[in-house]
Every structure is written in structure tokens, then in C-alpha cells.
Simulated scan of single mutants.
Amino acid sequence: MALIAQNHLQFIVEVGILMYAAMIFLLNLAPLSLSMILFLCLVLGIGFNIIFGLDVVALFMSFGQSEFTHPFGPIALLVTISSLAALAIMEDSGVEVGGLRGFVYILMAGITVFGGLMHRSFLLLWLLGLLIGFFLISKSMRQKSIITVKRVLGFAFIAVAGFGGLELLSRILQMPVLSPLLRIERLETFSLPSLKLVLKNTTLLGHNPMSSYWGELSSGFADGYISLPLQLILFFGLPFPVFYGILVNKKDVIDYMVPGIFGWAYDFGYITMFFLLIWCVGIIIMGLRMLYTYRDMRENGSKTYLGREVLLTGALAAFMSQALIGLFIINRTINGTALLTFIFLSSLIFATSFGVKE
């Protein structure tokens, strides 16, 4: 049947359509109050600190960590920026939020430490997302821009200090898995061959089948290097090529060693990569325009969409950060379960454009 996905790309598109429809329905099902969004964000912030913390404990105890930062890192960014946006609106209305802001900063610090210990790519996504989020909040509240040379240098210092601290910790504890330098050396060793593989074998509609791990069994399109979570594919019993068990290491050639634009181009072709970029830019532009619409409505005295406004602010910051890191630094940030998160954030941004009465 035509509606049953025939390959990974079609499955991604169909899941995306369903998620967009569901998000539009949910956001218009009931009004989202500012207090409710803030409460949910605080609860989720506590939850992310717990699961990221448990993941770090599992890492140090060698229990086998779950790597929650890949799928949940952008959502943690969403709830953090949404919380800060809500506090900014409340403060602008004359509400004292000093205590709550301090609590949010504590949650931010916890996520930074726990998430940074797990993945260096998360630390990049997190710091970039915070920078984007603070910028969006300042523009939404018509405040003086926070993007100053001093603050940019401050964020850069935090990033360098974080990476330096991880390297020092890895040597003290003799845990190479924590070492950023080891990761960089690994990327230097394997990224160049992966890039050569991609550039040499990518076509408009896929890739040279013989360059894929599957060899003669490959169709030259959607070989599973880019996919939704394996559990979702197995749940529906879809007969797609998947990298499972020890084969996951074979997927790293594309999944881990190249930026997303190369990974998507290799598995689905340059044409699909082009439309992916157009889609990302379109979602961001739509979100920014809607954010300015919400700001104008708030400044005109309407309090109907305050919850949506702060939710959109967080979703935009998270989506933009995930897109930049995933597309231009490491493909894994927008692959697998993280791809589901990526689609979720975009659907959240898209859904805010519906049901708004100006």
C-alpha cells in the first residue's frame, strides 16, 4: 500500500506529518497558560537533572550508560529557555521572580555539568542554545541585546574551561571516555576518510551502492545511515536495512564522523539534503515571525497566548541549536532518537502558527 513506508525517508516523512497533525491538535485543544507552562518546565527540568545525573553515575560505575543527552538534550534546552522566557514576562508584569530565577539557574548548572560529562557535543549544543535563547528573550522583551563581546567571550571561556576540566578529570580518573582530546583525535583519524567516501560516492538521489556497508544488497538509497529510532522501526515490523548490535559501529562512518549535511546527502542524495535545509530555514523563519506576532499581541494587552509565546521561544532556541550542531558539526545530533526530537521541536514551532486570532 502507498501509505506504508517503503524506505527510511518515507517513514521519516510520514512520522513527521503525523507528529505535526498531533501537535496542532494538542496546542489548540486547550489554552496554555503561562503558569502551567512554567510549572511543567520546572518539573521537566528537575527530571532531566535526575536522568542525566543517573546516566553520569552509570558512566562512572561502568553500568552502561543510556546516553540520554542525545534525544533529551534539546528538550532540556526547550524547557530551560521557556522557563526563563516565562520569568521575563512575569518580571515585566511586576511579579517578583528572584527566587524562581535562582532555582532555574541551579537546574541549568546541573544540566550543564551532567550533560557535559556525558557528551562534548551536548555541551556545544547546550551553550549555543542558551546563547540563542537569551538573545530571543531580549528581543522579545525589547531589552538591550545580551550579545556583547564580553558575554560572547564569557561563553567561550566557559566552553574552553568545560572541555579543559573534562580532559583533566579524564586523566585524574584514568577514564579516556571523558577525554575531549581523544574524541578530537578520533575525529581527525576517521572523519577525513568518511568525508572522502561521501564526496566521492554521493549522487543527486543517493549514493553508489557498492560504497555502502551492504554492498550488493544496497539500493543506493536510504541504507539506514539516517533513520528514526530502531525500536520504532522494529515495532512496525518495517523491512528496512538497519544497523543493529555490533553493526552500529559500521553506521558510525556516516552517523558520527561527518556533519549532518553530508550524512543526509549520502543516504538520501543531494536533492533531499537541499530540501532538508529549505525546511529548516522555513521553520526558523516561521517561528521568528510568529514570535514577533505574539510579542505585539502581548504589548497590546492580550494575555491569551503568553504560554504559547514562551513555549515557542524555547522551541526556537532548541531547534536552531540542534540544527546548527547537527547539520554542520555532528550528524548524530539529528539522527536516530535525536531525529525524533528534531521533528518534535519543528512541529511545536509549526503548530504555534495555527489557531491564533490576532
Score class of each variant (00 low, 15 high):
M1G: 15
F11A: 00
E14M: 14
L18M: 14
L18E: 08
Y20C: 11
M23T: 13
N28C: 10
L29W: 15
L32P: 02
S35C: 07
I37N: 02
I37C: 07
F39R: 15
L40Q: 14
L42D: 09
L42C: 15
V43D: 05
G47D: 03
G53F: 02
L54W: 08
V57M: 10
A58P: 06
F60V: 08
M61F: 10
F63A: 12
P74E: 06
L77H: 00
V79N: 01
T80C: 10
A85M: 06
I89G: 03
D92Q: 14
V97H: 01
R101T: 07
V104I: 14
I111D: 06
L117D: 00
L117E: 02
M118G: 09
S121Q: 11
L124G: 07
L125S: 07
L125G: 04
L125T: 03
L127V: 06
L128T: 03
L130Y: 05
I132R: 00
I132A: 00
S138K: 08
K139G: 10
M141G: 02
M141C: 04
R142L: 11
R142F: 10
R142Y: 09
K150Q: 11
K150D: 10
V152H: 09
V152C: 15
V152W: 12
F155L: 13
A156I: 15
I158P: 05
I158E: 08
A159S: 15
V160W: 13
A161C: 08
G165I: 06
S170M: 07
R171P: 07
R171C: 10
Q174E: 15
P176V: 10
L178S: 00
L178A: 02
P180K: 03
L181V: 12
L182C: 08
E185Y: 12
L187P: 04
E188N: 13
L192Q: 09
K200P: 07
K200S: 13
T202I: 05
N208L: 10
M210A: 15
S211R: 02
W214D: 01
S218Y: 04
S219Y: 07
F221N: 02
A222V: 00
D223Y: 03
G224D: 01
Y225D: 01
I226P: 00
I226V: 12
L232W: 15
P241G: 04
V242C: 09
F243W: 04
I246G: 08
I246Y: 10
V248I: 11
V248M: 13
N249H: 15
D255Y: 14
V258G: 04
G260N: 04
Y266V: 01
Y266G: 00
F268D: 01
G269I: 02
G269C: 05
G269V: 02
G269S: 05
F274G: 05
F274M: 15
L277C: 12
V281L: 13
G282W: 11
G282L: 13
Y294Q: 03
E299V: 12
N300K: 15
G301D: 02
T304I: 12
L306Q: 06
G307S: 03
L312N: 01
L316Y: 01
L316D: 01
F319A: 02
A323C: 12
R332D: 09
I334M: 06
I334K: 02
N335C: 05
I343F: 06
F344Y: 09
L345H: 04
L345Y: 03
S346R: 05
S347L: 05
F350Y: 14
T352I: 06
S353A: 09
G355I: 05
V356W: 05
V356Y: 04
E358F: 14
